[in-house]
Structure formats: structure tokens, C-alpha cells
């Protein structure tokens, strides 16, 4: 874990509870993310997912612990870590294209204007935006198109780590489906490392290599790391046919519905680290090592 591309070590976040005491969101959380990996984090509201995201983005400081990327501890926001915010965070006075060139110009200050624009247009094209639409202001675009612009801005910057904070949370289910596929299209063929928060189990299975499961807060922890043993390229309509799909899905539902509450609120010993337990569900192999959790799900 210490050798991972991104390693989160003993991360702790506490806030004063207003009564002189302290409120611990999570403590000693540790996990790693490999280069080129797409990792989703699932958990109930209030478990500190967004806090972890903000710490990774450098927008807030943890109470304790470090985050290392490429072996160096991160401090403050950086162009190496791109963020797609839930509410798009496009600058409303700039056109879609200008919103992207804004980021690209900051990332590549030596580039010529033309180079910046071409690069931006290419990335907007990758998320399915071209022609007249890229010259419109965000207010003239639909929610789905805005989030596409936001994704294009983040990918165009080619950050070492891309952070997606519930990027599809505000979109309707149909639009969400289309943009998830576009996200996969942009992501595949790059070695972009992605860390994404989501509430949507199916979305996580479709997109992720690995899903981190968090218990409920306070004193939340990253309890499990579930590998998604469904080969890529994945298509929404096909993966549901895969034997592993419902096995994994049931495991996740079971965790979020029951075990996330049961495992919550455990305080840790001094110096103890909470590393997630790796869970691998693969029904394509002979189901010899089937796990007890799964059996519980099936009954």
C-alpha cells in the first residue's frame, strides 16, 4: 500500500462538536490506488466521502494522516489533481469552450492560443460536444451538457489523478447513462487514474475497477475494497448478463443496507490503521471459495 501510486495513510478528520468535545468523521483510514485505476467509493451520506475527496483535492486539510501521490505528500490544490464537482462548477460568464480553455491555459501556460483551443475542442468532441453548442454559455446548456463540459475540462488537463465528486448526482437517469458511457469512452485509452464518489451502485459497477465501501459515520472507515471482476470494455446492457454482475451487486446492496451500519462507530486502538479488506467475487471460476456473505444474500 505504501508503494501505491496514491496512498492514503492514517487519514483522520475531526471537527469540534460545539460542546467542547470532538466529532470524528473517520480515523486512521488507509488505502491505496494504483496508477491507471478507476476507483469508486460508496457509502451513505455523512460518512465522509466528500471530506476525503476535498482532502485529496487539497481543498481542505485533514486533522491527521498524510496523502502521498507518486511518493510525495500532497499539500494544497494542484493541477496534478483535477476535480469534477457535483454542481459542474462551470464559470457561467464563459462559453463552454472558454471554460475548457480556461483550464488548459492554466495547465499548459507555454502553449499558443491556437494549440490551447484545438486541444480543448478535441476533448469537448470526445464527450460528444461540438459545433454550435461549445460556443454557448452554461445557462444555455442542459444539465447533462454542462457536466460533459466539466468532464472535458478535467480530462483536457490530463491530471495525474482525476477526482469526480458525484458527477452525475444531479442528472436524470437516462442522461446519466449516456454520460457514464461517454466518461468510459474518454477514460479508456488513457492511463488516467480516477477516484470517484457515487451513490449509485450500478454506476459504480459499470465504471470501476475497484469499489471502496465505507461504513456509516461518525467514526466511519473504509471497510472493504471490492474488485469488479467484469472484463472491459463494459456496456451497460451487456454487463447485467455477466455472471458476476448480480453477485457483486448483491454484495454491495447487502453492505450498504445492513453491514455499513453494523460496522459503524468502532473506535480504533492507538496507532491502529484501518485498511480495507479485499473482496473478490468471481463466479466464472468454480465457486469453491464462495464467501459466506454471498450465501446469505442468496437465501
Amino acid at each position: 500500500m505504501a508503494n501505491s501510486f496514491l496512498s492514503i495513510e492514517k487519514l483522520t478528520q475531526r471537527y469540534p462538536d460545539g460542546k467542547g468535545g470532538e466529532f470524528t468523521v473517520f480515523e486512521n483510514a488507509s488505502f491505496g490506488i494504483e496508477k491507471g485505476e478507476f476507483v469508486c467509493i460508496l457509502g451513505h451520506s455523512g460518512c465522509g466521502k466528500s471530506t476525503i475527496m476535498n482532502i485529496l483535492a487539497g481543498l481542505s486539510e485533514p486533522t491527521g494522516g498524510v496523502v502521498k501521490m507518486d511518493g510525495f505528500a500532497i499539500s494544497g490544490p494542484s493541477l496534478d489533481r483535477g476535480v469534477v464537482f457535483q454542481n459542474y462548477s462551470l464559470l457561467p460568464w464563459l462559453t463552454a469552450l472558454k471554460n475548457v480553455t480556461f483550464g488548459v491555459a492554466a495547465r499548459f501556460p507555454d502553449w499558443s492560443k491556437q494549440q490551447i483551443e484545438d486541444h480543448s475542442i478535441a476533448f469537448l468532441d470526445k464527450v460528444g460536444l461540438s459545433g454550435d453548442a461549445i460556443h454557448r454559455k452554461p445557462s444555455q446548456l442542459s444539465g447533462g451538457m454542462r457536466q460533459r463540459v466539466s468532464i472535458a475540462r478535467a480530462f483536457a488537463n490530463q491530471p495525474k489523478l482525476l477526482l469526480l465528486d458525484e458527477p452525475f448526482g444531479a442528472l436524470d437517469a437516462l442522461t446519466r447513462g449516456t454520460i457514464q458511457e461517454e466518461l468510459l469512452k474518454v477514460w479508456s485509452g488513457t492511463d488516467q487514474t480516477v477516484f470517484m464518489i457515487t451513490h449509485d451502485i450500478d454506476e459504480a459497477i459499470l465504471l470501476a475497477d475497484r469499489i471502496l465501501l465505507m461504513t456509516n459515520g461518525p467514526l466511519a472507515r473504509v471497510a472493504e475494497s471490492v474488485e469488479i471482476t467484469i472484463p472491459r470494455p463494459r456496456v451497460r446492457t451487456d454487463i447485467v448478463e455477466h455472471p458476476n454482475y448480480y453477485a457483486i451487486r448483491n454484495h454491495l446492496v447487502q453492505f450498504l443496507g445492513k453491514r455499513s451500519a453494523e460496522l459503524a462507530g468502532q473506535t480504533s486502538e492507538e496507532g491502529e490503521t484501518h485498511s480495507p479488506e479485499t473482496v473478490r467475487i468471481d463466479k466464472t471460476q468454480d465457486a469453491v471459495d464462495e464467501q459466506p456473505i454471498l450465501q446469505a444474500v442468496k437465501t
Binding site: L59, P77, N87, S89, F102
Partner: peptide, 27 residues
């Protein structure tokens, strides 16, 4: 704060942030 965060994640300096984000937002 989201717009300021956009400026921060793009490593804009204080002056650049003031002129390219805060000024148009507050204009």
C-alpha cells in the same frame, strides 16, 4: 465558493483569481 475552488484547483495566483474569477463573478 465552487468558483473559487475551480481557481484553486487550477493553481491560479491571487491576482489571476481576482481578475479571472472574482471580478467577473462579482461584476
Amino acid at each position: 465558493i465552487d468558483w473559487v475552488n475551480v481557481a484553486r484547483t487550477h493553481e491560479l495566483g491571487a491576482f489571476k483569481t481576482a481578475f479571472t474569477v472574482v471580478l467577473p463573478a462579482a461584476a
